[in-house]
Design a protein around this nucleic acid. Sequence first.
DNA 1: GTATTTTTTTATATTATTGTAACATAAATT
DNA 2: AATTTATGTTACAATAATATAAAAAAATAC
Lengths: 217, 217
Amino acid sequence: MTDILIVEDDEAISNLIYVNLKDEGYRCTCAYDGEQGADYIESQNFDLVLLDIMLPKINGYELLEYIKTIKIPVIFITAKCDVNDRIKGLKLGADDYISKPFQIGELSARIEAVLRRYFKVENKLVLDDVIIQTDSRVVLKQGNPVCLTVKEFDLLVELMRNKNISLYRDQLYEKVWKEPFLGETRTLDAHIQRLRKKLQWEDRIKTVFRIGYRLEV
Amino acid sequence: MTDILIVEDDEAISNLIYVNLKDEGYRCTCAYDGEQGADYIESQNFDLVLLDIMLPKINGYELLEYIKTIKIPVIFITAKCDVNDRIKGLKLGADDYISKPFQIGELSARIEAVLRRYFKVENKLVLDDVIIQTDSRVVLKQGNPVCLTVKEFDLLVELMRNKNISLYRDQLYEKVWKEPFLGETRTLDAHIQRLRKKLQWEDRIKTVFRIGYRLEV
DNA sequence: GTATTTTTTTATATTATTGTAACATAAATT
DNA sequence: AATTTATGTTACAATAATATAAAAAAATAC
């Protein structure tokens, strides 16, 4: 769940954003001045801050400086159409800006873009002679395509994104199968075996006894 | 993928351009002085250069002269509104100019225009003995015309433009049919079969089970 | 208005994936 | 060493997904 902090003193705008982003599946918190915004940021982890410039108590620029020290992406909301304002914001480290009045659609597009940029999912995964293109779902071993099924592919990506990390059986299963792990079947094992065989990774994919599996580099 | 080099010393502006162009699907590189710009140009192929005039080390005019020798289109970015400056730039071979401050929308419109002028969209698609002329909608196999219907042709072009990429069933359908994919019919399958048959591409056009199709090279 | 071509749909066949059962093996515990 | 618990392995069946052919519908040409 993505947490967004909305720092905006105009209640109408704040509400509008809140309602719309909530509908799109974000969890939102509203702060109505800079001080309150700072308080929230200290007490809770957010994934993104929407920040108005003109704010009571602490203004947007000041708050921005503080936020950037803790590395949360920020989208500036500015009423001013002046290019200088935008530049000032970007100079201070904002990741994007949007000018009032704006379309909600535009805002959510920018939010998505910034989040993608920040927590950017790596598209190309490589480990010795195996290359994975996550977008085109192609797996190459020594340059030759390897034919993986959907489940095998998803499982492989999950392992590759967590090289050298022991993944718990249940968590791994739930991530790939997107359903609760009941743990009385050999489904996960079977898929691990198939992966090992197809990639000849019998000793790359380690079993961590009583825990799960680990892709060892 | 279109590569754009941004040569601009003001980091805020550079970032602003970078972020926006990236969102529009361009791959961007930033250089912060003329020398760095020249280095990049030497080491990598770009499709377009955005070039500020006032630059440290090597100024824009000098760099422009160098760029024009290797025939990359250039759009000048100038802070000065002076007509003489623009004329000087255009005389030296710039393809367009834009004055600061500018709207991002204006910049991207100019970029598109210049690129259109320079590289008209790829008209000829080739894969082993099959040649496609997208403008005349002619398909040749071993030099002999193959008779494709509209839908077949559009589908083929879509596959050819995405060689080696697994295209999702729904996305592929929506791109070619330009309507939402409801997924209860075998329309797409039927067309894939006819394409396979007509081009004898039974094993070129791969089925990616539970995903879609891929034209494998 | 009829003929022809193209496209979509329907019905059925075929195929691929995936989960599971059943048993084997390995590791930990007693 | 025996027992318990966890994972490996294999084959197979259920299911879901795709292929195929032929009919129906829609679009276009005559």
